[in-house]
C-alpha cells in the first residue's frame, strides 16, 4: 500500500478573521478520481489552490506527492497538472502552438498531436485559440495540463457553463483519462458530475468536509430510508419512509391485495445523491459569495 497522493490533515485557511477552510482532512489514493463536491463559495477552489501551491495555508499539514506544495519546486511541478477554473487560452496562438509552448516547459512532454487526440482536438490543431468554442477551450486547458505527463491532475470546475451535450462529451473525455493512470482531483458543484465521474467524493460545505465516501455510500445513502409512494383509490397520495423497503412493500402488497385494491403507481425510490447532497449542504440560505 503506497502513501496517499494527496494527504491533508486539519487544513485551514483564514483571511483576516474569516476562516474559509476550517480543518479539512483529505486522502486521495493513487489512480482514483476524487471529487470535492460543494456549493459555490464552500472553499473548494481555495483548497485546490493550497494543494497546488498557489496559496499558503494558515494551518494544518499537507503533502501532495510526498512534498509540501508551499515549498515544492520545479521537479514537483513536473508531476502535477492543473486546470484552473477560469483561464483564457494563450492569446494569438494556435492550438498546436499553445501545446508546443507548454511542452517546452517540461522535461519529457507528450507530443502535441498525441494530446490533441487524447482531448478530442485533433481536428482543431491549427485553429487559433480565439476560434475555439467554450468546450474546446476547456479541452485545450486539460490538454495543456496533461502535456507534461502528470501523475496528479487537478480539475477545478471543468464543466461549469457547458450545455448538456458539451458536458456529456467532457465527462466521457475525463472518464477516458483514467486509462492514463493519472490520479485526478476534481471540484464541482454539480452532484450528477460527481456521481458520474468520481470514485470517491468529499462534500465540502462552509470550508469543512461534511461527508466522505463513494457515490453509492456517501452521506449514509445506502442506509438511508427509502421512499415508498403510492396513490390510494380515494385519490390520496401517500408517501412513507422505510428502512427495510422489501418487507414494507410486501406488507403493503398483502394489505392492498386483501382489500382488492390496486396501487398502479407504486414507487420505491432510493434517496438520490441530490437529496443527500442538499441535506448535507443545508438550506440555500448560505450567502451567495464568490468563491475565493
Amino acid at each position: 500500500m503506497s502513501d496517499p497522493i494527496v494527504h491533508a490533515r486539519d487544513l485551514r485557511k483564514r483571511y483576516g478573521n474569516r476562516e474559509v477552510v476550517s480543518g479539512v482532512d483529505l486522502d486521495v489514493r493513487a489512480g482514483e478520481l476524487f471529487a470535492l463536491l460543494g456549493p459555490n463559495g464552500a472553499g473548494k477552489t481555495t483548497i485546490v489552490e493550497i494543494l497546488t501551491g498557489f496559496r499558503c495555508r494558515s494551518g494544518g499539514d499537507v503533502r501532495v506527492l510526498g512534498a509540501d506544495p508551499q515549498t515544492a519546486g520545479t521537479v514537483w511541478r513536473e508531476r502535477v497538472g492543473v486546470v484552473l477554473q477560469e483561464s483564457q487560452p494563450d492569446p494569438g496562438l494556435s492550438v498546436r502552438e499553445c501545446l508546443s509552448l507548454y511542452a517546452g516547459y517540461y522535461r519529457a512532454p507528450r507530443r502535441p498531436a498525441e494530446i490533441a487526440e487524447l482531448v478530442g482536438l485533433a481536428d482543431s490543431l491549427e485553429a487559433g485559440t480565439g476560434q475555439l468554442s467554450g468546450g474546446q477551450r476547456r479541452r485545450l486547458d486539460i490538454g495543456l495540463a496533461l502535456i507534461g505527463r502528470p501523475e496528479l491532475l487537478f480539475l477545478d470546475e471543468p464543466t461549469t457553463g457547458f450545455d448538456p451535450k458539451a458536458r456529456r462529451e467532457a465527462w466521457d473525455m475525463i472518464d477516458g483519462l483514467r486509462r492514463l493512470g493519472t490520479t485526478i482531483v476534481l471540484t464541482t458543484h454539480a452532484m450528477d458530475e460527481a456521481e458520474r465521474l468520481a470514485d470517491r467524493i468529499a462534500v465540502i460545505v462552509d470550508g469543512a468536509v461534511v461527508a466522505q465516501g463513494t457515490p453509492a455510500t456517501i452521506g449514509g445513502r445506502d442506509h438511508h430510508a427509502h421512499e415508498i409512494t403510492f396513490t390510494l383509490p380515494t385519490g390520496r397520495r401517500v408517501s412513507m419512509r422505510s428502512a427495510q423497503p422489501l418487507a414494507d412493500v410486501r406488507a403493503l402488497a398483502d394489505w392492498a391485495l386483501g382489500r382488492g385494491i390496486d396501487l398502479p403507481d407504486l414507487e420505491v425510490r432510493r434517496p438520490a445523491l441530490e437529496d443527500v447532497y442538499l441535506a448535507l449542504a443545508g438550506s440555500p440560505t448560505t450567502t451567495d459569495s464568490q468563491e475565493a
Binding site: S87, Y105, Y106, R107, L144, A145, G148
Partner: peptide, 14 residues
C-alpha cells in the same frame, strides 16, 4: 494575461 489566468496557468507548470 494575469487577469485572464494565462500567467497563473503558466506558473502551474515547472
Amino acid at each position: 494575461q494575469r487577469e485572464s489566468g494565462v500567467l497563473k496557468r503558466r506558473r502551474s507548470t515547472p
